[in-house]
Design a protein around this nucleic acid. Structure first.
Length: 415
DNA sequence: TCTGGGGTCCTAGGACCC
DNA sequence: TCTGGGGTCCTAGGACCC
C-alpha cells in the first residue's frame, strides 16, 4: 500500500543561542562560548559553541562543571527575547519556502515539501536554496535533514550537523538507521538506553531481532513505537501528526530556583505570588482559563514533589491561582526544610467559566479581569517589576487581595 | 560536577459511578 | 458480605526534548 512518499525537511539551527549571541557581540566568534549563566552560578548550560564542545561541554551540564572542563570559555547570560525574535525571522524564511511549516521548538522546524518539485526542484536542490536563503536573511547557519518521515528527517539533520544537508533517499531508511546508536532515536534517553542494553540492544539494527509484540509487552506503547521507528516510521504519538497540525499549548508554567535555598516564608510567598502572576498573565494573553493548578516544590536535597488541585470552574485570575498555590504549599511544605525551587503550573484548559455563577460573581470577575489587563499593559510599558500584587506589606497580601480588588492595579511597587 | 526552565506524553492507582 | 467490570476523572511521578 504505497501512497506517494512524503518529503519532509527537518531544519535545525546550529548552536542557535550561541550564534544569536555572536550576532550581538561579534567578538565571541570562534571562541569557546557557554550560554546560560555565569561560571559560578547555579544553573546549566543552555548552549555551547563548537569550540567549547571540544572540551566536553554540552547543554544541560551544570555551569560549574563546564567551567572546570573549559576554564577559558566565555560565559554569557541567555536572552530569550533575542532568541524569540530570531526564531520569528527563521520562521519567515521557512514559510516563504513552504506553506506547511511547523516550528517544533524555538530553533527547529518541520516542512512538508511534498509536491513542491515543480517550484523548488528535487529535494537536495531545494534544501541548498533554503540553506543559502537562511544564511542570507538571518546570518545564521542551519542543518537540514530530508526524509520520508519526521523521524528520518530529524535523525538525518542531526547527522548533517554542522551546517550541512543530508537526504535519506526513499527506501533507504532502514539501511540509514541500522548502524546508529539507539540513543540517536528521538525519545530514547538514558533510561530507555539502559533498558534496551539489558536485552542486548545497542544499535538500531539490534532492534530488528525482536518482533513488535515482544517489544510492546516489554516496553508498553513505547516499545511498539520503537519497533516502527527502527524502520523509519513516524510510529504513533505526536510524530504521526501531519506537519502544520501542531495543537495549542496544553499547559503553562513558571518556576524559580533560588540562588540559595530558603526557609523564609515571606520570600517564599512573594515568589509564589510572582509565579502566580506570571502564569495568570500568560493565561490572559492566550485567552484561556485553567482548571488545574499545580505546585512544584523542590527541597535542598533535590527531592521534588508536585501537588495539584482541580477547580470546579476554570480561572485566569492571579489571585485565584495564588490562593490555591498558597494553600497547596502550606499543606505540603515540611516546615523549616530549605526550599530550592518553587513552580506554578496551570493545565486542563477550558473556555471561560460557565454561566451558572450568579451575576454578582460574574461582575466581580469582570472587574478583576479589567484590573489585571491594565496591570499587564503597565508591565509592558514600564517593565516586569513596576506592578505587583504582592506588596510585602505587613499583615500579608492574602486579605488585601481578597478585600480590595478595585484598588489593585498600579498601586503597589514591589522591590 | 551538584544538578534551569519551559514544555509533552505516558503510566498507575484510587475514587466514584453505573 | 467475600465480591465483577468498564469508564471517567483526578493526582503523582517520571522520561524525555530543546
Amino acid at each position: 500500500m504505497s501512497v506517494a512518499a512524503r518529503t519532509i525537511f527537518h531544519v535545525d539551527m546550529d548552536a542557535f543561542f550561541v550564534s544569536v549571541e555572536e550576532l550581538y557581540d561579534p567578538s565571541l566568534r570562534g571562541k569557546a562560548v557557554v550560554v546560560g549563566g555565569q561560571r559560578n552560578e547555579r544553573g546549566v548550560v543552555s548552549a555551547a559553541s563548537y569550540e567549547a564542545r571540544k572540551f566536553g561541554v554540552h547543554s544541560a551540564m551544570p555551569l560549574r562543571t563546564a567551567a572546570k572542563l573549559c576554564p577559558q570559555a566565555l560565559f554569557v547570560d541567555g536572552h530569550p527575547e533575542r532568541y524569540r525574535e530570531c526564531s520569528e525571522k527563521v520562521f519567515a524564511v521557512l514559510n516563504s519556502f513552504s506553506p506547511q511549516v511547523e516550528m517544533a521548538s524555538i530553533d527547529e522546524a518541520y516542512l512538508d515539501m511534498s509536491g513542491t518539485e515543480r517550484l523548488h526542484g528535487p529535494p537536495l536542490k531545494a534544501a541548498h536554496q533554503l540553506h543559502q536563503k537562511m544564511k542570507h536573511e538571518t546570518q545564521l547557519n542551519c542543518s537540514i535533514g530530508i526524509g520520508v518521515s519526521r523521524l528520518v528527517a530529524k535523525v538525518s539533520s542531526a547527522k548533517a550537523k554542522p551546517n550541512g544537508v543530508l537526504w535519506v533517499v526513499p527506501g533507504q531508511e532502514a539501511k540509514f538507521l541500522a548502524p546508529l546508536d539507539v540513543r540517536d532515536i528521538p525519545g530514547v534517553g538514558k533510561v530507555t538506553e539502559q533498558n534496551l542494553q539489558a536485552i542486548g540492544v545497542r544499535r538500531v539494527s539490534d532492534l530488528a531481532r525482536f518482533d513488535d509484540s515482544f517489544l510492546e509487552e516489554r516496553f508498553g506503547k513505547w516499545g511498539l513505537a520503537l519497533a516502527g521507528k527502527a524502520r523509519g516510521e513516524d510510529a504513533g504519538g505526536w510524530f504521526d501528526t501531519a506537519v502544520g497540525e501542531h495543537g495549542d499549548a496544553k499547559s503553562i508554567s513558571h518556576e524559580h530556583t533560588y540562588n540559595e535555598d530558603t526557609t523564609e516564608l515571606q520570600e517564599i510567598e512573594a515568589t509564589l505570588m510572582r509565579l502566580s502572576e506570571m502564569v495568570g498573565r500568560r493565561l490572559r494573553e492566550g485567552g484561556v482559563h485553567a482548571r488545574t493548578i499545580q505546585l512544584k516544590l523542590r527541597y535542598k536535597d533535590f527531592t521534588t514533589i508536585t501537588r495539584a488541585h482541580t477547580l470546579p470552574e476554570p480561572t485566569q485570575l492571579d489571585t485565584e491561582i495564588f490562593r490555591q498555590i498558597r494553600s497547596l504549599f502550606h499543606r505540603n511544605w515540611k516546615r523549616g526544610v530549605p526550599v530550592r525551587l518553587l513552580g506554578v503550573h496551570a493545565s486542563s484548559f477550558e473556555a471561560g467559566p460557565g454561566g451558572q455563577e450568579d451575576l454578582l460573581e460574574t461582575e466581580e470577575r469582570h472587574r478583576w479581569q479589567q484590573a489585571l489587563s491594565a496591570a499587564d499593559h503597565l508591565r509592558d510599558k514600564f517593565g516586569e517589576s513596576s506592578v505587583g500584587l504582592a506588596t510585602g506589606m505587613k499583615g500579608g497580601f492574602r486579605e488585601r487581595t481578597h478585600e480590595n480588588p478595585a484598588g489593585l492595579p498600579g498601586k503597589h511597587r514591589r522591590d
